[in-house]
Amino acid sequence: MKLRIITFTAMISALCAVGAMIKVPVGVTSAALDSAPAFLGAVFLPAPVAGIAAAIGHIVSAEIGGFPYGPFHILIAFEMYIVVWGFTKLHQKNHSILKWVYAIIANGILSPLPFYWLISPEMFYSVTPGILITTIINVVIAGFCMPVLSKAFARKEAHS
């Protein structure tokens, strides 16, 4: 793996960790601004690597929140990997609107769905609104930052 990709992955993972410390008060202790940097990783990371950065970001967020769902956080980290992997693929194919819709639906609604059966329907219904709100906040932050980051990255690539 190129040193540049490793460096960008570490940077995105670190930004996810910082975002994990900014909690969104929606009743879910691991709800935080940890996925906004991961979505931004779509600008300059391959899809699998952006997904890894997102998974790391979730694990840090869960740790800061005290791992309220115990080992289920491994599942959530895997879901974050899938969400950001798909988002990055859509970004790379220039699906400018679809990638944001996908991020909101996949992370805000589909990601909590396994907990309907794994824990209880009540748990699913109680956490999904908070997760959806937090996802929208993360997507809005990434949406505002991505055009600037894309331009800066394109400019740097042109000069390399």
Rank of each mutant, 00 (worst) to 15 (best):
72 F>R: 05
75 L>P: 11
106 A>Y: 05
24 V>Q: 10
44 F>M: 10
55 A>I: 11
120 S>E: 09
152 A>W: 02
122 E>W: 04
45 L>I: 15
18 V>W: 01
44 F>K: 13
128 T>Y: 06
96 S>C: 04
110 L>G: 06
93 K>L: 10
47 A>G: 15
3 L>V: 14
118 L>I: 00
107 N>Y: 07
73 H>K: 11
131 I>K: 03
61 S>H: 13
119 I>L: 13
120 S>F: 11
135 T>S: 04
34 D>L: 01
79 E>H: 00
33 L>A: 12
27 G>R: 03
51 G>F: 14
155 R>I: 09
159 H>P: 06
58 H>V: 09
56 I>L: 14
92 Q>L: 05
115 F>T: 12
69 Y>R: 10
16 C>E: 07
46 P>C: 03
55 A>D: 15
101 V>S: 11
12 I>D: 02
25 P>M: 05
91 H>D: 08
45 L>H: 01
54 A>I: 04
65 G>F: 05
111 S>R: 00
122 E>I: 02
16 C>K: 13
71 P>E: 04
154 A>W: 12
137 I>Q: 14
109 I>R: 01
14 A>T: 09
77 A>M: 07
3 L>A: 07
11 M>K: 02
145 C>H: 02
28 V>P: 15
47 A>N: 07
3 L>C: 06
157 E>D: 13
129 P>C: 15
138 N>C: 07
114 P>F: 08
77 A>L: 08
20 A>Y: 01
29 T>F: 03
153 F>P: 08
127 V>A: 08
5 I>V: 12
92 Q>N: 03
80 M>C: 01
63 E>W: 13
93 K>M: 10
117 W>E: 08
79 E>V: 12
11 M>L: 14
62 A>L: 02
111 S>C: 14
58 H>C: 04
7 T>C: 08
27 G>A: 06
126 S>T: 07
114 P>G: 06
117 W>R: 14
102 Y>P: 02
98 L>D: 12
105 I>G: 14
26 V>S: 01
104 I>K: 06
41 G>K: 02
120 S>I: 05
125 Y>S: 13
27 G>I: 12
26 V>N: 09
97 I>M: 03
56 I>R: 00
69 Y>Q: 00
31 A>I: 02
149 L>Y: 11
43 V>G: 11
17 A>M: 03
93 K>A: 10
104 I>R: 02
136 I>R: 13
35 S>I: 02
88 T>A: 00
25 P>H: 04
63 E>C: 15
125 Y>C: 09
47 A>P: 15
76 I>V: 14
121 P>R: 04
145 C>N: 01
